[in-house]
Computed example of a mutant assay.
Amino acid sequence: MPTHLVNIKDKLFENIFENAPNGIAIVGLDYRWVLVNHSMTELLGFSETEFSAMKFSDITHKDDLDEDIEQLNKLLNGDIESYQIEKRYFHKNGNVVWTLLSVSMERHLDGSPLYFISQVVDITKQKEMIWEMNSIKEIAKNQNDKLVNFAHIATHDIRSHIGNLGMIIDFMEEETEGIKDDENFKMLKESLSQLEVTISNLNEVRRDDFYQHGNLTPKKLSAFVENAIYNMNAIAKNEQCKIINEVDDINVMGVSVYLDSIILNFLTNAIKYSSKDRDSYVRLRSVIEGDFVVLEIKDNGLGIDLAAHEKDLFQFRKTFHQLKDSKGVGLFITKNHVESMGGRIEVESEVDVGSTFKVYFQKA
């Protein structure tokens, strides 16, 4: 090759070597650092002089050294042309630096080994992100385990109380003449029955993971609406709020306990935030839109200022009225239940006119 081309080639290599954003080093067959670029000194904190006085093994984490040397021997023997591994170096300040190390070999014209060429990319931040994600996953798993244990204890204990209440109701029926015909007693007995169904549904959730849409099963929407209305009859009567049920006999894809919770939450809110200035009502009806069944819950209550609160409507601990028992939890939970079943919620509302919530369920 002509001398001027050799000079150009050498100059080009020198520019690439010195200005590369990642570390590049030439390492001797005795594992000593022969030459390092500026990025390498920045990465590990040692000067060129300090590098030249060390072997790479001096600043390699002991748990990564054996694999590195094993790969180097394969290079020397000609078994491989290059290799890439994750490897930890020690910075001059003592910190561990995670890197992605790529190594190849330069040889003499006769094929004998000359030196190793190492390229070093800092991946410490990526590693830290992975560790943080794994930590969050572990925390979430631990919290989930605690919730499962809590649900097991809670459902077991509540079921015991339900059994006791059932026995008391039986005693009342036997000992109190005419109580079976009392409307309030009938509502109490039916409410206790519905509570037992809810506990059974909670056990169903405790045993299985329903956050995958494939685990949903067909459910009769009108049955859940009827149960919710029955459970709210006493409260609606007390608040002088009329409940109108226009839900068709149609199936949706869902989870029993979630459907119970969703319908009961919307119905409770509609009654709770009814207006005292007019005859209150809540109308529930169903509409089919494409692949969805829409449950529409419409009221003529206090309404919500959507211009001010639309972004916070389903956020945790956000409330929009000054009732003392408003916690800002119901809508947050309800939205999560609906979305976990592949649905969504739309809202229309006007202050002192009323609200309409449209809940989209997957059609069975």
Rank of each mutant, 00 (worst) to 15 (best):
M1A: 14
H4N: 12
V6G: 06
K9T: 15
D10W: 12
F13S: 07
E14R: 15
N15Y: 13
F17R: 01
D30C: 05
L35P: 02
L43Y: 06
L43Q: 01
E50H: 07
M54Q: 11
I59P: 02
K62E: 14
L65R: 07
D66P: 00
E67G: 00
L75G: 07
L76C: 06
N77Y: 09
D79P: 00
Y83F: 14
I85Y: 03
I85G: 03
L114K: 13
I117R: 03
S118L: 09
V121C: 10
I123A: 07
E128V: 10
W131P: 00
N134S: 13
I136E: 08
E138Y: 09
I139T: 13
N142L: 10
K146E: 12
N149V: 09
A154I: 08
I158S: 02
S160V: 07
S160M: 07
L165T: 06
I168C: 09
E174I: 13
E175I: 10
K180A: 14
E183T: 14
K189S: 14
S191R: 03
L195H: 04
V197Y: 11
T198G: 08
I199G: 03
S200N: 15
N203S: 07
R207V: 13
D208R: 14
N215W: 06
A223V: 05
A228V: 07
Y230M: 14
Y230R: 05
M232R: 03
A234D: 11
N238A: 10
Q240F: 11
C241R: 01
I243D: 00
I243P: 02
N245W: 08
D249L: 02
G254A: 03
Y258H: 10
L259D: 00
T268G: 10
I271S: 00
K272Y: 05
K276S: 14
S280I: 02
N300P: 01
L302S: 05
K311A: 15
D312C: 09
T319C: 11
S326R: 03
V329C: 08
F332C: 09
T334A: 05
V353I: 15
Y360L: 06
